[in-house]
């Protein structure tokens, strides 16, 4: 009976994910998404997978993303090593379409304090490729194709115990031909040389004891930095805004709550987690992205610990 329930839950999540749309990745679905110091944090090998879809029927817009990550702790070098791979595609029929992929590798040495805390600095290197086909006047003009790659590094630090963590990471843009072209074309880039991105990430578990069935775990990511609107702007502005969040309730093996991709439901054990998230719009519950009230987001997240930690 339990097997049927699990299979039904996974299948329902897959159907919901394909029926909905999503570009936003729920916080926690990919541990190294904002902070590469999470590599090897579990103590054992860990595999993560997230499938997201987003749709906005008003604009006949669809987006898909598929991300996986694998990380483990290597005792010989007392460091965690993580690998990530992702693919995404987006389409506005008759106007534009884009797709891209990226790979990243992270190394995070671990230093333990009194057997209760771990301090981990980390360095991440990401290579990505993107291609966009833009047609301002569909059917009348030749679409404009834009492609490029980017090389991005990220430095981070993470302090954690069994119940909480504090992380901070800074983006270090190394090379970005895609953004350069886009900067030339549109006058504004997501990652400009003047732009400074950093992420604060917090998490804490409210649980009476480590053996209690019920727990509440809020997590929050703040994006902070400076930017300029475009190349003509003289003054940069500072921003500090929530980027992602997760309010996770757990009783036994069942989890529920809300995250930046929507409301989520699933099951979670020490080794396995299966979670389905459903929300609204590109930015989930945080902000709207102008895709209309009928925009919908769905994510299926899966995590598996290959070797159980002895904690």
């Amino acid at each position: 009976m339990r097997t049927f329930l699990k299979a039904g839950l996974v299948w329902s999540g897959i159907l919901l994910s394909f029926a909905c749309y999503g570009q936003v990745i729920p916080l926690g679905a990919l541990p190294m998404q904002y902070n590469p110091a999470f590599a090897g944090e579990a103590g054992g090998p860990r595999f993560n997978f997230n499938l997201g879809l987003l749709t906005a029927s008003r604009f006949r817009h669809n987006e898909y993303n598929l991300n996986t990550s694998y990380d483990q702790f290597i005792p010989a070098i007392r460091s965690g090593v993580g690998f990530s791979a992702g693919y995404f595609t987006s389409s506005f029929p008759y106007s534009s379409s884009s797709e891209g992929y990226k790979f990243s590798v992270a190394v995070a040495p671990k230093f333990s304090l009194k057997g209760k805390y771990t301090i981990s600095p980390s360095l991440d290197l990401t290579y990505g490729s993107s291609a966009t086909s833009w047609n301002p006047r569909p059917g009348t003009a030749k679409p404009l194709n834009l492609s490029g790659y980017h090389l991005l590094s990220r430095a981070a630090v993470l302090i954690n115990s069994r119940k909480w963590y504090i992380g901070y990471s800074v983006d270090i843009p190394l090379h970005n031909t895609y953004q350069y072209y886009r900067y030339r074309l549109f006058g504004r880039s997501d990652i400009s040389p003047e732009r400074f991105n950093s992420y604060w990430q917090f998490g804490y578990t409210f649980q009476r004891s480590s053996e209690s069935k019920f727990s509440f775990t809020p997590q929050l990511v703040f994006l902070t930095g400076t930017d300029r609107y475009n190349r003509y702007s003289r003054n940069s502005f500072r921003y500090f805004a929530p980027e992602a969040f997760s309010l996770n309730f757990r009783y036994g093996k069942f989890i529920w709550g809300a995250n930046n991709a929507g409301f989520h439901l699933g099951m979670q054990t020490e080794r396995v987690r299966v979670m389905v998230s459903n929300g609204f719009g590109r930015r989930g519950l945080v902000t709207s992205d102008g895709l209309g009230s009928d925009a919908y987001t769905g994510n299926l997240s899966f995590r598996y610990m290959l070797k159980q930690s002895r904690w």
Binding site: G28, A42, K110, S112, T205, S215, T217, Q219, S309, W311
Partner: peptide, 24 residues
Amino acid sequence: QQRKADQFLKGNVPYVVPLNSENF
């Protein structure tokens, strides 16, 4: 937690102190 930390210092558990994977 102190007992676990003692076991950790004796080398009976992995080097890192992981987050509770049941909650995070």
